[in-house]
Nucleic acid binder design. Structure first.
Lengths: 209, 209
DNA sequence: GTCTATATACAGATAGAC
DNA sequence: GTCTATCTGTATATAGAC
């Protein structure tokens, strides 16, 4: 790689890093191109040498994220396919939660971008179903094994993903209220047994007050 | 009420109605003041005679909604406080779902507005906890009765509300994929028993394949 | 109170020098 | 490739006539 190209790559990386910081702080929609260039210590005009628009930059950030997240998911090589097994469910929730939190600013940015498409567009549903495809496949596997599902696999998967992404977005990272372990544990328990809790702990009929 | 005041009230109502339509179509952030006034058949300048800003208008719409939703919740006079009872849980989900869907455009607008405050602000969490206060109280009641909860009541309530509001926003109203009854049923079952399903239907240990 | 016309402000994007 | 300076489009909000 030549020196010129290296410098260009450096600038591009600086812009991306700055964008991540700015998105995390002000949000995607509120971040101006000039905010990014200023934070990266570059001039406004330089931005367009690397990205056609803010949306184009977001696409690049998403590509980076997917490349990295793909590694995580593949490397984990997680035990196959029984979401009703406590350990396996928790492992899935854990991985999904980690990915969401490590890429919170980019995922939030994508969320804002999708939102800007308007409520009538159905873009949010498309995103939700795509991002929860893994859950859906696991649920379909359960259904094939004649296990009772709460409903259509795609809908249940969307419900699970929607819950998690909403929490990931709502709970600001530096938050002291809930440590990550507690959140993962709570989500896992809720999705595993619901509000009634594990069978063993349920009061026998008539025994509850 | 005098004629002049009546005319003014009429214009204000027309602006509100137009805003609801435009918000539903384009989304809150994408809707321009001129979109609203044009849809209402009024001039741009008239807007500011009634509302100080788009945000101010949103506040008015939210006030209307809360007044109306308060009626619904109070009139229902729902059976008190056992979310582990299938009928009671389903009734709560049903009411919450109806409120969300009947006011989808306004709730979505508020959502976008909160989002615009930026991810670091924590505004989304505040909104989520406020809107799920009822769930939280019901869960605390369960905890007081020594029933096992999946986690901290406020967190579980937020998870429930987050799931529902995300689905309410993602599933566009005219959607044919899932009828309202199916959605309510699926959410209820998932929150009641989780992915493992009701105890009676669970395969005995070792019996599953 | 409502209208038309306009001022203000600012974000996105480009031109041209270096 | 990067910079400074600038153009363009557009949304908000106001001024002033009716």
């Amino acid at each position: 790689m030549g020196v010129r190209k290296a410098k260009a790559a450096e600038t591009e990386a600086a812009l991306k890093a700055a964008a991540r910081r700015e998105f995390a702080e002000r949000g995607y929609l509120n971040t101006k191109i000039t905010d990014i260039t200023a934070a990266a210590g570059r001039a406004t005009g330089s931005f367009y040498e690397h990205f056609a628009s803010k949306e184009d930059l977001l696409r690049a950030l998403l590509a980076d994220m997917h490349a990295q997240a793909g590694d995580q998911l593949a490397s984990g090589d997680h035990p196959p396919h029984d979401l009703t097994d406590p350990l396996q469910l928790r492992a899935h929730i854990q991985v999904a939660w980690n990915v969401m939190r490590e890429n919170r600013s980019v995922m939030a940015a994508q969320f804002e971008s999708v939102l800007a498409a308007g409520p009538a567009s159905g873009a949010l549903w498309d995103r939700l179903t795509e991002d929860t495809e893994m859950f859906r496949r696991h649920l379909e596997y359960l259904g094939d094994s004649d296990r009772p599902l709460p409903g259509d696999p795609a809908l249940v998967a969307a419900a699970m993903g929607g819950m998690m992404s909403m929490l990931a977005y709502a709970l600001t990272p530096g938050d002291t209220r809930y440590p990550a372990a507690e959140i993962v544990e709570t989500i896992s328990r809720l999705l595993l047994y619901g509000l009634t809790g594990p069978p063993a702990l349920r009061p026998a009929d008539g025994a509850g007050r």
